[in-house]
Design a protein around this nucleic acid. Sequence first.
DNA 1: CCGTTGACCCTTC
DNA 2: AGAAGGGCCAACG
Length: 106
Amino acid sequence: MQPNDPDFRDRVYAIVASIPKGRLMTYGQIAALAGSPRAARIVGGVAHFGDPSLPWQRVVKKDGSLAEGYPGGTEGHAAALEAEGVSVTDYRVDIARLVWLPNGVE
DNA sequence: CCGTTGACCCTTC
DNA sequence: AGAAGGGCCAACG
């Protein structure tokens, strides 16, 4: 849909804000949905300087490891995920099981 | 307009 | 299986 071409950043905001509780998403996945599968780094940049109100805690790496730039480090991120009901083991989550697969991907 | 940076991803040792 | 290096894309100065 192109009523107005939203910036890559705006696209990421919508995706992250659409992540349901108890689900996780990888930066690469979000970047791919935003339109650039290789722009995972950009998603990270948006995460840090973007809207802090968004559930970035539900966003993890492709291998299931947690983000390092998160406030408090991986430990703080792990605590936030457990608060959402996500089981974190060794600072790692079962990404293959908790990764959220969007239904209607444009 | 060009160069640098980044909450990453992928390939190879 | 774990660790290291290079690369891609977009935003900021």
